[in-house]
Computed example of a mutant assay.
Amino acid sequence: MIDLSINMCGIHFNSPVAMASGNAGYGIEYQSVSGFSNRDVGAVFLKGTTLEPKLGNKPDRVMETASGLLNSIGLQNPGALSVINDYLPKLEMSQSQFIINVSGSSIEEYAEIVRLFDQTALPAMEINISCPNVKKGGAAFGNDPDMAARVVEACRANTSKPLIVKLSPNQTDIAEGARRVIEAGADALSAINTMMGMQIDIHSRTPTLGNNQGGLSGPAIKPIALLKVHQVYQVAKLHNIPIIGLGGIASAEDAIEFFLAGASMVAIGTAIAKDPLLVKKVNAGITQYLKANGLTSVSQLTGQLILNTDTVLCGSL
């Protein structure tokens, strides 16, 4: 019997396939889509939420690129209390797991948001450390291992719920960053967040995004994401810390690659915008692969990558 359900951080998930934060709103937006069911989704990572409401960045905010999307939404959201009072009561918690994405511009803000959501029925929180640190000139928390660890420590002090730390791929050494947040109290890791990028209009000679730069997502970043997950897994497995892999997943084959690289679960983002029912199709493809290979669960795939023995350090031709 094939069983796609998984248990991670003491939480039961119907499926190893989730909807990534920023792409599924606050979990209620997809309920009107014909054929969509939260029961097919392992988890819905809710939109990044700050303490106070945010209007986000000026337009344009989303632009297509070759094999991906550039976005610079700027964390537009109604604020933590509005999410708790107005959005969470509308969620059918028995159908899937819903996990808030905590975003902040200071350590104190992260800690306070976690304190507020600790009092809700949500089973876990995802800590987005790719946010800019306003007290340090705007550099992202996640690109500085010391600052990332301090954020996680502050959040850990305010909740007993599992903390899933979303790692930035823009840091120098993602494995070292992973080690630091694990030691600071992370229960699981998400890898990876978007890559920073830019697009230019050659006629106006200006960036197409109103904020000049944004996060690149979609199939274009999948090879990078796979390598980052593999690198993080070398650290995470030593501490028995699970990884949620994401970055360009658009098929069951993509998801399976992430499992082999070290992920226990995957999340789909950009591809959901094209096909809202994609998670169900990916579940079916994973089931077919497990059956064809005489396996019964995704856990039998996690970290089973067989590396080539003859390798060179240089990646060029």
Rank of each mutant, 00 (worst) to 15 (best):
S15V: 06
V235C: 08
M265W: 08
V17E: 02
A157Q: 03
N158A: 08
G79E: 08
M1S: 04
F36N: 14
A124V: 04
A154E: 13
M147E: 14
L55I: 04
L216T: 12
N133W: 02
Q304L: 02
K54L: 15
V312C: 10
K136H: 14
A148E: 01
A157Y: 06
C155Q: 03
S316T: 09
L75D: 02
I127N: 03
F259N: 00
P145Y: 09
G185Q: 02
A225D: 10
A121M: 13
M8Q: 08
A154D: 11
L189H: 00
N85W: 04
S96W: 12
I100A: 07
D60F: 11
I113R: 06
G215Y: 11
L209V: 02
A149K: 00
T208E: 15
V282D: 01
Y87T: 04
E253D: 15
P169V: 08
N211T: 09
E176C: 09
L163V: 10
G137P: 03
D187E: 04
D60M: 11
L167A: 01
L69I: 09
Q234M: 14
E253V: 08
E257A: 12
L189T: 00
N211S: 10
S94Y: 15
N14C: 05
A175R: 10
I306K: 13
A273K: 01
S217N: 08
N212I: 15
S297C: 07
N283I: 09
M265P: 02
A18C: 12
A225E: 09
I28V: 15
M265Q: 07
G185S: 04
P219D: 09
T309M: 07
T120F: 07
T302A: 13
F36D: 12
I192S: 04
